[in-house]
Design a protein around this nucleic acid. Structure first.
Lengths: 217, 217, 217, 217
DNA sequence: AATGAATGAGAGTTCATTCAT
DNA sequence: AATGAATGAACTCTCATTCAT
């Protein structure tokens, strides 16, 4: 289990959950998805995992540690669940961007639990440093992978040449996160994907005119 | 006190808080901003408002009702706190869009409490219909006012003619919400505003080339 | 309620228990007498006082505070329960010493609860400063009142003139405390009182007679 | 391992601790000395002894049995730790009494752990017969050895002839125990030893001189 | 002989809520 | 309108003990 994008000293310290604690963490994950952290009760977690409450404390000394475990589990999901890759052997920037959208669709449409839990944890991370240490890297990793795609696209000439990958990736992540979080209807979310593409992609044929229009003095 | 954009039957039912209950709601608002709904305790609310617990329950039968009151209070803030209007007597669409950004800047930079509380309430609204009934109209109102601006801009020719105001407003609201929520750095948030403008605004003069690609019939 | 011999700043801070908290403290006192601090359960205290467990915590925030309350209650008992005074209008030193024994008999024979609880609290006071602050003054007060009696007796010529009241009072208190604590049989305890008197009291005028009385074959 | 003064059927049943259980008992002893029986946790004992909890229960079926083991260990200490004997080949009664004081000094000054643990066990022995069965004999043995010394001293003429060894030994043990337990300052404890000697020892030959020495102006 | 894993039965404490005044 | 007192229901966490290996 690794947090993608986290520094080694974090990943090295990650527990590899065995069967029992994994069952507990999954139970907690489901309960958070259903009722929020607010309604998370250790007894319910233990009951759903089919163990005694004392067993829960055997593996997770405190409720806080359990929630940290849920964060780690979520991170592992983000690392392992990905939409099937687009066919292209060597994906170009646009393919990669669309892969990003495909992943977003997967997480937000097919696995809405993950978004709910992520949202809860992001909110909690403001006050719980242990959770922040797991959740923040996820966010940074997401932004970074978008950033690389943008840089590639600019180099390829597929994306508008005036794009600043560090800032534009922030915009894209914000829009995707907002779309997942608000929550929008499915077709509104699709509109977000399309809008991003429209904004990012270099106008066709005669780029000169567009470049002239926007960026020339 | 009104929820902007809410149907009349909602607004008609809104309590006009008197001094005492208003103090309680403000105390609760502050505590939610500080520690989240998770750490909201009726005793703390009463203590901060300088009244007895029983007095709190005299005005708000249950904690739920108090939280609903916080939502209403938040709505009233969104209705009353606005960035100073741009000077134009009859603002054009771009001015109105920028006014939207100015409001966002105000809420998210100057009044981060409001965003925090809003975020908490949005999360809660998934499970608390009473809160949803207050929070959802806010969101819809926000989207609607953006939508109107977009429609105006398209009519004026200031915005790209292929814009679908209902969908594009969703995009913009999602991006703004994501920017407020993630949280981004200040300059990343500014990049979001700029990106939206870039995407929305019709390319200048010679649209032909770009228009041909995207918009021509 | 005062702790005899305690400095004013302690006595000034002493709570005057009202009916309900007094009932709780008495219940706790009885339970400590029966089963020791070790077996003291807040639930049992509440049950014996006939109130809900939450009511206990309304008056005593923590179990520690309740135990402190027991210590204060014990102190008040030592202050108010005394053996009936010997008849003498102006008691001489020997009368006062015997009054001390009478008190000891009362506490240790008639009110063995008090000794048990005192013993528990003395042991606890090693680790609980709040209890120490109540219990230590009791001990010091006890020693001091014996010390005064001894000084009076030495001045009166009733006690052996080579007595050092500060040290001898320590001896007496130690012996009385040991007798109460060990526990000894009733007649052994009486032997302690007699031994102290023998040791303390000045041999009668004509020492020869004393020597004769005591030591001659 | 024997309990000095205990009847044979007790001593015959005493376990001779092997290395592992002895380590456990010592760990428990130390923990009791540090935090009292109240804070004794089997897990801590096992941890300090460097073994698993289950191993502890392999040797001591219950916590009670472990505490009984601590009592036995304490008894063995009292049997084996003694102050270096006074030089006299055939000690007279006064020497033996002083040896008693020397032992008390050793236990109470140099080995305060032993007194603490003893005190805890004496308190517990009121409710735990198994502990009482170990602790009571210690007390009786102590009293008995003092009693013998007193009888010898009376026979020798070194101690006051009106002394009742059974009662006076109770007095002495009570005073020593009280001195150890209260706790007194070092010099107060010394005063106790001196006072006992003063009380016990026969006034020198010519009573008149003694009387003169002590009481004459 | 020794252990890691698991547990039942509480423990103290919290908290929204109620009630008599 | 306002409160001090009181409470039921839960909550997290603890701990001596057990059991399969």
């Amino acid at each position: 289990m690794t947090v993608p994008g986290a520094p080694d000293h974090v990943n090295d310290a990650l527990p590899t959950f065995e069967e029992r604690p994994l069952a507990l963490v999954r139970a907690a994950f489901d309960l958070v998805a259903e009722g929020g952290l607010e309604r998370l009760r250790t007894r319910d977690v233990a009951a759903r995992a089919g163990v005694n409450i004392a067993t829960l404390h055997y593996y997770f000394a405190t409720k806080e540690k359990l929630i940290e475990g849920v964060a780690l589990y979520l991170a592992s999901l983000f690392g392992s669940i990905r939409a099937p890759m687009v066919e292209a052997a060597e994906p170009n920037a646009l393919d990669r961007l669309r892969q990003e959208f495909a992943d977003a669709r997967l997480y937000f449409d097919a696995q809405p639990q993950m978004v709910t839990v992520m949202q809860e944890l992001v909110l909690r991370s403001r006050r719980d440093p242990a959770v922040a240490q797991v959740v923040d890297p996820l966010r940074r990793f997401w932004k970074l992978s978008v950033e690389e795609t943008l840089a590639l696209g600019v180099r390829e000439g597929a994306f508008r040449p005036d794009l600043s990958p560090p800032l534009a990736s922030g915009v894209i992540v914000a829009a995707l996160w907002g779309a997942a979080t608000l929550p929008l209807a499915h077709e509104e979310r699709e509109a977000v994907y399309r809008a991003i593409e429209q904004w990012i992609v270099a106008p066709p044929q005669s780029q000169s005119s567009m470049g002239a229009g926007h960026d020339a003095p």
